[in-house]
């Protein structure tokens, strides 16, 4: 996968945030946690497994060819406290995901509690983020 892959895909915004330290349990140094990049596509799979749930979606590149992206997110327990269930995202859903892309340009990314601002936006406008909704 070439370094320019991300640019060639349907990027609609890229913002710089001041990030809090990542909270993935093993470290997120493969991802650009200073960036927030948006991809839009159709969900192909939502994997609800420990220790990392994953969202896969087909994203069209500039030539209209579908590229399957994989987005790493939190554990089921952390997602549960953020208001998610294993049915929150379903194959066929049209979603926009604001995520931290892999530094190497591969079509993989991180979106989760460690990086505020990352979230999933459904075509209805409904949003799901990764922040804990329980009382602290």
């Amino acid at each position: 996968m070439k370094n320019g892959t991300i640019k060639s895909l349907a990027i609609v915004l890229s913002l710089i945030f001041l990030c809090t330290p990542a909270t993935a349990h093993h470290g997120n140094s493969a991802y650009d946690e200073q960036a927030r990049v948006s991809i839009k596509g159709v969900v192909t799979e939502f994997v609800w497994t420990n220790p990392h749930c994953q969202i896969y979606l087909d994203v069209k590149d500039k030539n209209g060819k579908a590229v399957n992206w994989g987005v790493e997110t939190n554990s089921p327990a952390i997602l549960t406290r953020a208001g998610w269930t294993s049915r929150s995202v379903k194959p066929g859903d049209e979603v926009t995901i604001i995520m931290c892309p892999a530094k190497n340009g591969a079509p993989v990314a991180y979106a989760g509690s460690g990086d505020p601002g990352t979230k999933v936006i459904f075509s209805s406008g409904r949003e799901l983020d990764f922040q804990d909704k329980t009382t602290k």
Binding site: Y31, V47, H52, G70, N104
Partner: peptide, 16 residues
């Protein structure tokens, strides 16, 4: 975890 590594962690960590 192995499946996750194959599908996401390893592609993310691959040297370019």
């Amino acid at each position: 975890e192995e499946e996750f590594a194959r599908r996401i962690r390893q592609p993310a960590a691959q040297q370019t």
